[in-house]
């Protein structure tokens, strides 16, 4: 089962990127094999709809999203796809996954970020 962590770089020890729609990388972490695979986010410069497209990209590959904040469009899309969302993650990708597994992250039940917040943060 895959967890997707939004990150500033493509590695396990890369820092978590607090944004979702316009994060730099999506790092997919397989909870069973512990394998890591990163995808560079193609939606970084989208003027609108980044959250939706990023959510669709992630929904096909992971059942769980771990990030800092979620904007309204991303939240709506991930929610419809049945993806579990956890927000408030910090540290490295590895640390964020450990926090998720230890039950230390809050489940996101609503969007907590304004639309377009992630542009050039």
């Amino acid at each position: 089962m895959n967890v997707c962590v939004t990150a500033l770089g493509p590695m396990e020890n890369s820092e978590v990127d607090p944004r979702f729609g316009r994060c730099a990388y999506f790092v997919f972490f397989n909870l069973h094999t512990r394998a890591v695979e990163a995808v560079k986010n193609p939606n970084v410069e989208a003027s609108g709809g980044a959250g939706i497209q990023s959510a669709q990209l992630v929904a096909s590959r992971a059942a769980i999203v771990v990030t800092g904040h979620l904007g309204p469009n991303a939240f709506k899309t991930l929610n419809a796809a049945g993806i579990s969302m956890f927000s408030g993650a910090t540290g490295t990708v590895k640390e964020a996954v450990a926090a998720y597994e230890a039950g230390k992250l809050a489940r996101a039940t609503a969007p907590d970020s304004a639309s377009k917040s992630g542009i050039a943060s």
Binding site: A46, G48, G49, I52, Q53, A55, Q56, A59, S60, N73, K76, T77, A80, A81, G82, S115
Partner: peptide
């Protein structure tokens, strides 16, 4: 304008979401 998104549901009909602001 990416105002519509199709969400696949395995074994079921895909769902279409509308984003009116886009």
């Amino acid at each position: 304008y990416h105002a519509l998104a199709v969400i696949p549901h395995p074994g079921k009909k895909s769902q279409v979401l509308v984003f009116p602001h886009l």
